[in-house]
Amino acid sequence: MLKKNKERRSIKENLLLAATTASASGITNVASVIAFFAFTSNVTGHVAIFAEEVVKGHWHQVYIVLVWLLLFLFGAFLANYLISSIAKKGRYLSHAAPVFIEILVLSVIAIYGHYYYEETLRETECLVGGLLFCMGLQNSMVSTISGGVVKTTHVTGLFTDLGAELSQWLHPITPRSKVLKERLTLRFTVLGFYIIGGLVGGWFFLKYDFLAFFLVILILIFVVYYDMTRVITKLTIRKIKKPAYVVQEQN
């Protein structure tokens, strides 16, 4: 899922990446709505709230929403910056770096929320900001490594693309190409797993509160582990074969 760049990715790898990260986004968003009455997988609603609070002159709320927007933006910036900066050390490492950061931040949120959260306004504002940062990080990571093909933290653009592509698929003049079929499969995968993630996340949060975020962490660990085993195996094979090449060169 993470090892290959956008030019070499297969439809299977994009589908796996879409399914896992969309379910993670669904869990996060629904859990956040239940806990804080705030959406965290996208910032569309927050932009509207920002404008509303400016008009009403509620400057504290304006400041908080602005910080939330900037945290989502910073997450997106950081993911792409890390991928570009670490690319020389290997695609897998550079693509996995944002995932490790997201796992770390979500772990802090899950532990703090379960053991220490007292439902104060300041705590709520900080935890929502942390989740928005994670979702900006994840969305940018997924979009960057897939070349913009996969986006899994919001469904507004998904429905727009899905509507346009369904129109092409059903239109009597437009040919039903393999590429169009793959795009539709990808869109429905994202939508389906986002909904499944939301249902599972909502049930787990109502039953186990903030520990539900460990479901997201487990999904992200699977994303990292899926390619890690292949990378380690490949490096091990190289080390085993290297002495044989050295012997041949010496002979």
Rank of each mutant, 00 (worst) to 15 (best):
S10H: 07
S10A: 04
I11F: 04
I11Q: 06
K12H: 12
A19Q: 02
S25M: 05
S25F: 11
N29L: 05
V30D: 06
V33N: 07
V33T: 12
I34Q: 10
F36H: 10
A38K: 15
N42H: 11
V43F: 02
H46F: 05
F50Q: 14
A51N: 06
E53N: 14
V55Y: 11
H58M: 05
L69N: 01
L70M: 07
G75K: 11
I86P: 03
G90T: 06
A97N: 09
A110H: 04
Y112K: 13
Y112I: 07
H114P: 03
Y116F: 13
R122Q: 07
L127F: 00
G129P: 03
F133M: 01
S140C: 03
S140N: 01
V142W: 08
S143L: 06
V149W: 01
V149T: 15
K151S: 14
K151G: 09
L158G: 02
D161C: 00
L170D: 11
P172T: 08
G192P: 04
I195G: 04
G197P: 11
G197I: 08
G198Q: 02
W203D: 12
F204T: 15
L206I: 04
Y208T: 14
L211D: 10
L211S: 08
L215H: 05
V223S: 08
K234D: 12
L235C: 01
L235M: 01
I237E: 09
K239Q: 10
K241E: 13
K242N: 11
Y245E: 15
E249F: 02
Q250R: 15
N251I: 13
